[in-house]
């Protein structure tokens, strides 16, 4: 009887999804890079805040217009539509070109994209470090000079990381990058978990992860 109740509960949880959660996909990579102001920015700098990562060459131009517009819209709507409680939210764009010792390159790219340096900042480092970080850590392809015009070819999109440094969403350009609605909706799901998954309610959230997210 109890087993049947558990089975029915599991079925109901899976079908009706009374609590929605974003999966805890994997650890976001650790790094220590510089930001557009010349200061060190590390994976620990975003600890405790929700971070939306994007990836772009310094001279991205028209190729990044849609993604930049999406980021701007998300930043605007998060303030009005997403209640993250005391948890902060920021966007970090990782420059795919090397910026060894020259943060002005980052500052220029940030200005062109509209990044204010606070809620949206650009970070970068040496070519090898960034290639390892983006390729092995965020699982995105990056090839310097491989574009049709000799520009850096890359796999644009977004990665959503929670305050514990865990990847909660991975968005590829062709499907969701221009879609601020999806990003805001997922941020609302994450915000709900951050606000509510405490005490007894954490059991329900863990059940949701168990039923909805495990492979």
């Amino acid at each position: 009887m109890v087993v049947a109740a558990v089975v029915v509960a599991a079925f109901a949880f899976t079908v009706w999804q009374p609590i929605q959660v974003l999966p805890r996909i994997e650890l976001a990579p650790g790094y220590a890079l510089v930001d557009q102001r010349g200061g060190q920015y590390t994976s620990e700098s975003g600890r405790g805040s929700v971070t939306l990562y994007s990836f772009a060459p310094l001279d991205c131009g028209a190729r990044c217009e849609a993604a930049d517009a999406t980021v701007a819209e998300v930043l605007q709507r998060v303030t009005a539509e997403v209640d993250l409680g005391n948890v902060g939210f920021r966007v970090v764009t990782i420059a795919l070109d090397p910026v060894d010792g020259d943060p002005s390159l980052l500052a220029g790219a940030a200005q062109r994209s509209g990044a204010d340096g606070e809620r949206w900042r650009w970070i970068g480092g040496s070519g090898e470090r960034v290639r390892t970080l983006v390729g092995s850590g965020f699982h995105r392809s990056i090839a310097a000079g491989a574009g049709t015009g000799g520009e850096t070819a890359f796999d644009p999109g977004f990665v959503l990381v929670d305050g514990n440094g865990v990847i909660r969403g991975d968005y590829r350009y062709r499907t969701t990058a221009p879609d601020a609605d999806k990003l805001v909706a997922n941020l609302q799901v994450l915000a709900s978990e951050i606000r509510n998954a405490h005490g007894a309610a954490s059991v329900a959230y863990e059940a949701a992860h168990l039923f909805l997210c495990y492979p």
């Binding site: 650790g30 994976s43 620990e44 390892t132 440094g165």
Partner: peptide
């Protein structure tokens, strides 16, 4: 450094230039 990054860990000499290392 490469392996630590994949474990979500960073490390770098501290900003003050001392003998300590900042790390996750």
């Amino acid at each position: 450094d490469r392996i630590a990054s994949l474990y979500g860990v960073y490390f770098a000499p501290d900003d003050a230039g001392g003998s300590t290392i900042d790390h996750s």
